[in-house]
Nucleic acid binder design. Structure first.
Lengths: 224, 224
DNA sequence: CATTTCACAAATATCCAATATTTTTCAACA
DNA sequence: TGTTGAAAAATATTGGATATTTGTGAAATG
């Protein structure tokens, strides 16, 4: 029992469907505002009509899909304003979470920050150039883990959940930036290193400022 | 069908079930951590097994219900820590939203603040003593509208949604405080008036401080 | 010619009943 | 005392069917 593995993973059909559709939305295979008809989705992803409905309801909760009564589901729109709104919220959550994490920091958390930063650096080196989808996915996962680690020691379950939710919503935009080669990897490396160092040096204000820099660069990649 | 009433409204079965269960959780008819078996719920509220599943999935997204794979649903637990976490998040969201609203304030918004404050004051007067459920509901609704109004001009759809979500989660605790007569209505009136005045006077810092006072009084009602 | 109306097709929401899978219970067993 | 392994209970998933709503286009109206 002590070493029982975590069985709460993607066991269920609904969870698998959700993962597949979530990924396709993130990669743009399902476009913003696209109508999601149950029958078509079933043909593409499998599952029964009810499983598909439940899946879409789940994705609606995550903000990837929007539902209108009596008018079905569609992919959440992704305008410039949406991007700004999502990243603004994510920054706000992560800023607050990072502050709290730094207040409650212990050695284990500092270790996980270092580890996540290291993995991120490696992933960023690998993803430059012309990455395939798998490399892009690994890079995105490293980004996700790094961001999640920042708030992991905040002690607030709901804050952690919210960070995850907004990260997922921002993923589409981030992958689009990567595809279009609009990311300044040199600047990112510098900011990420500075953020890690500020965290380890317990310079909260400095860390927050670096976090803001990193996020802002994803809102306006061509100006800063 | 099962609920022959208000057919003219756009309410779907799932939405009606969700409203009923949400209310019963808020009022404590469904206790924290209580197992929610589909069959029992169907007997009590009606609906098919799928509608009920979808409803529970919806409530899960709102944080009122928790789901575990292969182990069904249960009412979200409501410990002292949960209360603190929820109110901390709500305060954080409302604080940020209020700041943004005050930056972008216009006459229409100021008017809605005044209106919401007025309705809240009336509702608070009426709910003192030994209120019945309907009065309590109306009071709660006035509280909700007032809080929602604070962030309504923030310009961020997601911030507004988040405020609503955390308000809904905090409702249970607030109604419990009312039932147990642990609310200091005199202090609330004073704080609410001060908050409204600070908003209209565009004293952001002061308004934020009053908002914090109000929220803190709901976390530790007997010490403030 | 523009507009309204209405029937019909498409899509969505819901329900009933049945099967498969997974947990939980509990008593026999070493 | 602790383990094992069925039986029982609960959950997850499916299929097919029906009601309800929405969208569309042609005929009717002024």
């Amino acid at each position: 029992m002590l070493f029982g593995k975590n069985k709460d993973q993607d066991d269920t059909v609904v969870a698998m469907l959700a993962a597949a559709i979530r990924r396709d939305i993130s990669f743009g295979a399902l476009s913003p505002d696209q109508k999601l008809k149950i029958e078509e989705l079933r043909q593409r992803y499998g599952g029964s009509n009810h499983s598909m409905r439940e899946t879409l309801r789940l994705l609606t909760a995550e903000g990837m899909v929007e539902a209108t009564a009596q008018r079905g589901f569609r992919v959440t729109s992704a305008t410039e304003d949406d991007l700004r709104d999502i990243l603004m919220m994510r920054l706000h959550v992560e800023r607050f979470g990072l502050m709290r994490s730094m207040e409650r920091a212990d050695v284990a958390w500092e270790g996980s920050v270092i580890a996540a930063h290291h993995a991120l650096r490696r992933a960023e080196e690998r993803v430059q150039g012309d990455p395939d989808d798998l490399t892009a996915l690994e890079w995105d996962e490293a980004c996700r883990v790094f961001s999640a680690t920042l708030v992991a020691a905040s002690g607030s379950r709901r804050l952690i959940e919210m960070q995850d939710k907004f990260y997922n919503q921002s993923r589409r935009f981030r992958l689009a930036l990567l595809r279009e080669a609009r990311l300044d990897f040199a600047a990112r490396a510098k900011d990420q290193d500075a953020l890690r160092d500020a965290i380890l040096a317990k310079q909260t204000d400095h860390a927050i400022a670096r976090l803001e820099d990193i996020t802002r660069a994803e809102i306006m990649p061509d100006t800063g």
